[in-house]
Design a protein around this nucleic acid. Structure first.
Ligand SMILES: [Mn+2]
Ligand SMILES: [Mn+2]
Ligand SMILES: [Zn+2]
Ligand SMILES: [Zn+2]
Lengths: 132, 132
DNA sequence: AATCTACTTTATAACCATTCTAAATAAGTG
DNA sequence: CACTTATTTAGAATGGTTATAAAGTAGATT
């Protein structure tokens, strides 16, 4: 398994559950956006296998902390995550309630002119809301 | 009261509670960011007067719908609102967990190159996360 | 002014995504 | 294997938000 080493390097034991979640998250053609609930359903369907909700939460948070997932800043009743960890932005289709990737190259360079004393910029995220 | 007409124009009856919330939100030198909980506390302290939590929620949502408040897209356990309804952006200080306004002029012009068929842009929001 | 009706406020319950708990299980180490 | 520590798990708890439904109020009508 290609994920065993990846997990070990991060100080995470390569358990059956984590490896399965890796498969679902990272063995895909394209990256995608998901909620915890989406992921639980995907695991059920794709692996015919139940992983407890607590473990899914734990694993997603562990992966996020290690930088294998990104949380998307959006107001929703659920938290959205992204398997695309590249520096990029999002459209949010208000009607469909769906996120669409917006590559950095699709947004002109962003230059923040204001500086805050003693603080440095960690990330810049653009959210473009779409309506019909 | 200057808010009576404003509310009537919006189709909202100028009740005692709504007028008081207007005072707290809009009778200020500067605009500010708040959570529902912040607002409840502010009302208590500033008006020596309790307004039920449900009414605060109802009123904030009504004001948001009418465009007198903006919701700020950020992942938090609480929803943040903004009395600054101008087109602007935010710093988010991860340590202090505080929002700081970033005027449009403090961010270079943002040009979204990608187009989505049949959708138009409703808003563009930039969130700049700050660390030490 | 009294009456009527739709809107609003309120306390409280319900909701539900997320986190916590603590016991069972599994992984790594020697 | 024996031992330690990390992980999984079901279920309980948490907490912000929303729903409910009864009481109160605003504005319109007579
Ligand atoms: Mn997280
Ligand atoms: Mn709202
Ligand atoms: Zn994305
Ligand atoms: Zn602001």
């Amino acid at each position: 398994m290609k994920y065993i080493e990846k997990l070990r390097k991060s100080g995470l034991r390569p358990t059956k559950q984590r490896l399965q979640i890796c498969e679902v998250l990272f063995d895909t053609e394209k990256t995608f956006h998901f909620t915890i609930n989406d992921l639980v359903n995907k695991i059920q369907k794709q692996l015919n296998n139940k992983i407890s909700l607590a473990t899914v939460y734990n694993t997603v948070h562990a992966f996020e902390k290690k930088g294998y997932l990104k949380q998307i800043p959006i107001n929703s009743n659920q938290t959205y995550f992204d398997t695309n960890i590249s520096d990029h932005h999002h459209f949010y289709d208000l009607k469909e309630e769906k996120l669409i990737d917006l590559e950095n190259s699709d947004v002109g360079p962003i230059n923040i002119l204001k500086k805050i004393e003693g603080k440095k910029i960690k990330s810049i995220e653009v959210l473009v809301k779409l309506e019909d």
